[in-house]
Amino acid sequence: MDKLRAMAVFVTVARCESLSAAAREMDVPLTNISRLLSQLEDSLGCALITRSSRRLELTPEGREYLTACRLILDDLEQAESRLSGGIADLSGPLTITAPETFGKLHVLPVLTDFLKQHPAIDARLLLLDRRVDMIEEGVDVAVRIGALRDSGHLATLVGSQRMVTCAAPDYLAGAPALSRVSQLAAHSCICFVAQPSGLRWTYASRRGGRKTIRVRPRLTVNSAEAAVDAAISGLGVIRVLAYQARHAIRSGQLVPLLEEWDDTEIPVHLLRWPHRTAPRRVKDFISFAAERLREPLGEMAPPALVGSADGACR
């Protein structure tokens, strides 16, 4: 058995979550993929993947071995690059994840420009409003909005965001007053289930301190984009990250509220997992993306949105 080849097959199968998809990506017969994976498991004396009729899942041993395989294969790629003088064009796979709305608006344009410059790179962009396990899901770079809990990752700060509370003018015309956080209890709210706070909205202000209020969800959705659309229709009050409501606020479809209670900045980082060396394509993409993202993040700060008609952690 070619151990390195078998490891590459295992990494591809884990990322594709399918033997047949891995076979198509590697352009080899499905029988070869299955045989190499079985030989690798036999040599290790344990199962790496559990197979069902619907999907493949890594075993605990498989998750641990997957990390080791990626480290070894990446180190080998870096060694070959150094021996060849490092002058070869960037090539290989690149997987990036970002929150859905932020990814569509800001990460996708950056990634497409990067791919145009490097035609030998093939990329996957996963737009997910949930925290991703970068190792298990095979992610090279993650856009993370919010405080970093997993400090083991290598992080590049690219800017910051704030939460904004807002509602449509039509809703506010017939609703009770809303100038204090405590008054939210009398309002219909649209809740975004991916927010860690759930049905409790916490406000942090340098002047007013920290206040938490339990809100009444008239509607609960699983995407910030849907929450913004529902608020525009006049259904109730939303609280989302500034970039998610930026266009609606600028166009006058939504009105910012309780701004003095929400002046805490939320950092935005690019993360990569902390192996000893990273493929040059990963490092170059982070440098490229960091420079490109800093400008729009600066423009998206709430003060630029408030009072101008033209102008949660995830």
Rank of each mutant, 00 (worst) to 15 (best):
S91Y: 10
L305I: 04
D75T: 04
R70C: 10
R82M: 13
V193F: 13
S182R: 15
A312I: 11
A98N: 09
L66F: 03
L219Q: 11
M1C: 08
E80T: 07
P256W: 06
C189G: 07
T277I: 10
K3Y: 06
T212K: 05
I238N: 01
A177F: 03
L297N: 07
T67N: 14
C189E: 09
D74K: 01
L105T: 08
L178C: 06
A168C: 07
G174T: 12
A155M: 03
V240M: 00
A227L: 03
V141Q: 11
P119V: 04
P303N: 05
G152E: 14
L125V: 09
L90I: 05
R162M: 13
F192C: 10
D75G: 06
E80F: 11
P256G: 12
R124Q: 15
S188P: 05
L90F: 03
S34Q: 14
A230T: 06
R239T: 09
L235I: 06
F192Y: 15
S81K: 08
I213M: 09
Y171N: 10
L71F: 10
Q244T: 04
R207W: 12
R214N: 05
S160Q: 04
T277M: 12
R70L: 09
A230G: 10
R280H: 04
R250E: 12
R124F: 14
L44H: 00
R250V: 09
D74C: 07
S188K: 14
P296N: 07
A68V: 04
Q253I: 04
L257G: 01
D27R: 15
V139L: 01
N222T: 12
C46S: 03
M7P: 00
D133T: 12
S160N: 04
V237G: 00
A147W: 05
L37K: 09
G307V: 10
A186G: 00
R63T: 13
G174K: 14
R239Q: 10
R246C: 12
L40Q: 01
Q117S: 15
P60I: 03
L184A: 07
I72R: 01
S91L: 08
I49G: 06
R162N: 11
V193Q: 15
S223V: 03
S43M: 00
L48K: 00
L115P: 04
F10A: 01
S81G: 03
T67G: 14
E80R: 13
Q39R: 07
R276H: 08
E295K: 12
R292N: 14
S84F: 05
R272D: 05
N32L: 13
R246S: 13
L127H: 02
C191V: 15
A22H: 08
S308R: 10
T220H: 13
D2C: 02
L56K: 06
R70E: 12
P274G: 04
L94I: 08
P274W: 07
R214P: 00
S223W: 03
V215Y: 09
I266M: 02
R54L: 12
A231I: 02
C69Y: 02
T220F: 14
A167P: 00
D150P: 05
L178S: 10
A173K: 13
I87G: 14
T31Y: 11
